[in-house]
Computed example of a mutant assay.
Amino acid sequence: MRVLVTGAAGSIGRVVTVGLADRGHEVVALDLVPPPEGYQGAWHTADCADRDAVAAVFGAEQLDAVVHLAGVPGEEDLPTEITSHVITTAALLDAMVAHGVGRIVYASSNHAVGRTPRAGLDDGLLTTDVRPRPDTFYGTAKVAAEGLLSLYADRYAVDAVACRIGSFLEEPQVRRNLATWLSHDDCVRMVEASLTAPAPGFHVLYGISRNTRAWWDLEPGRAIGYDPQDDAEAWADRLPDRPEDDVENSVVGGPFPGESFYRPAL
């Protein structure tokens, strides 16, 4: 499969481009920055929010699918977040429709439901059918991007998988990560499953590893072939208790719902 990976120079992008290539896929990379020294594959330097630049990439490449990882990774004002996560997704979807590319895998976020209290969750797990409860403008933009994917799935029969990624880290760093960790290897497994699952339509899954203390339901991922292998529990004895752990563990989004993230929208 020939796959366009946006945000290829980012933390997730660097792992996914190598991982997909190792699994026999042909990667076409796209990022705001030039390729790293020694990179051998196809690379386009462009802004995903620029519809003409995105269209030019699709015109130059024969693509089978898109993995959309580009975007501001933290909290900014609302216009910045909307541009970074919604406008970029729209530009890619329009180019996909124009060029007959039928599959997109999107890096959504747990912050789309980050203000959901953990107390009272059925079986202690958050399912994908809960209402959106974004914890920030970042999370709000992820909700909007998921809505756009749903629209294009219904309107144009695009297969769109939204992966609500937890804590993508080499290893867990704080106690919250015992539930939310997504290992590098499992991230690649998740993306490949999302690329190759037969006709998923619009599908949402939680992007975490097979964590013993998981808060989020893994069944939507397993339904399309994502079978995570790693478990954050191996680090449980190495992580110190912190005063903020109880607060961060009381809601799905960790520290993001807190007042330190409050700011005007505009």
Results as ranks from 00 to 15, higher is better:
128 T>Q: 04
129 D>H: 11
120 G>A: 12
124 G>T: 05
131 R>M: 08
139 G>D: 04
110 N>Y: 04
132 P>C: 00
116 T>Q: 14
125 L>Y: 03
103 R>N: 02
106 Y>H: 11
133 R>Q: 13
98 A>G: 11
124 G>F: 09
113 V>Y: 01
102 G>A: 08
136 T>Y: 09
100 G>E: 05
119 A>P: 14
91 A>L: 07
94 D>R: 14
115 R>M: 13
118 R>F: 05
99 H>Q: 10
117 P>N: 14
130 V>M: 04
85 H>E: 03
101 V>A: 03
86 V>T: 09
138 Y>N: 08
104 I>W: 00
93 L>W: 09
139 G>M: 03
88 T>A: 15
135 D>K: 04
104 I>H: 00
116 T>F: 02
128 T>V: 15
94 D>W: 10
96 M>L: 09
134 P>S: 08
135 D>S: 13
138 Y>G: 06
108 S>F: 01
120 G>S: 11
111 H>D: 04
124 G>D: 04
98 A>K: 07
136 T>S: 15
89 T>Y: 14
85 H>M: 00
89 T>H: 15
120 G>T: 02
94 D>Q: 14
118 R>W: 04
97 V>I: 10
101 V>Y: 00
107 A>K: 02
106 Y>L: 07
117 P>A: 12
127 T>W: 00
86 V>R: 06
116 T>G: 08
112 A>K: 03
113 V>S: 10
98 A>Q: 12
137 F>I: 07
83 T>P: 15
88 T>K: 12
110 N>T: 02
107 A>R: 02
129 D>F: 09
126 L>I: 10
85 H>N: 11
135 D>F: 05
116 T>R: 11
118 R>K: 13
120 G>K: 06
98 A>Y: 08
131 R>A: 12
93 L>C: 14
138 Y>F: 13
86 V>D: 07
131 R>G: 14
91 A>I: 07
137 F>W: 15
119 A>G: 15
103 R>T: 01
83 T>Y: 08
129 D>P: 08
137 F>C: 12
